[in-house]
């Protein structure tokens, strides 16, 4: 659709405003992998409720906005279980080892011209592009 980029921009502004609230309000970096990962490995249990309530907001808001859309919403998720499990494991391990994902390194890092954030973003975009080139155009799996 030709209006997709407008919704992308609007959604992006909302995402960035969320990050600004989290930073200026709570003094935290809004990184999804860090917020989740801290609950998984125990490093963030001392801020359990701050993290849990944030994630609750992330899950609930799409359900509130959902009725405003009169079009069918489809995530087009792959049905290949091997791909889903491999991808989930890679995303989980990778984001925690790199200490950030698209929100932490991408949004919060690039916006302060962080060398680490920019480098991480370049590498995960290149790796993602390469995987699609191989698994879609060569192997035809995804």
């Amino acid at each position: 659709m030709e209006t997709d980029w407008i919704w992308g921009l609007v959604g992006g502004l909302l995402i960035g405003t969320g990050g600004a609230v989290y930073l200026l309000g709570n003094g935290r970096i809004m990184g999804a992998s860090g917020i989740i990962g801290g609950l998984v490995d125990g490093s963030g249990w001392n801020t359990f409720w701050e993290r849990a309530v944030f994630l609750f907001g992330v899950v609930v808001m799409p359900l509130i906005l959902w009725p405003l859309y009169n079009v069918e919403i489809d995530t087009h998720m792959t049905t290949n279980w091997t791909v889903i499990i491999a991808a989930g494991l890679l995303v989980g391990v990778g984001t925690r080892i790199a200490n950030g994902c698209t929100s932490g390194h991408g949004v919060c890092g690039i916006s302060r011209f962080s060398l680490r954030g920019i480098t991480a973003t370049v590498f995960y975009i290149l790796a993602g592009g390469l995987m699609l080139a191989i698994f879609r155009h060569v192997l035809g799996v995804v």
Partner: peptide, 28 residues
């Protein structure tokens, strides 16, 4: 930073999901 980002990017490309959207879309 480099190895982790490459591993993450590989998974991101395969499924088209990163941690934030994976949480946001969990109900649908």
């Amino acid at each position: 930073l480099i190895t982790g980002s490459v591993l993450f990017g590989m998974g991101w490309g395969l499924a088209g999901l990163c941690p934030g959207p994976a949480v946001a879309s969990i109900t649908y």
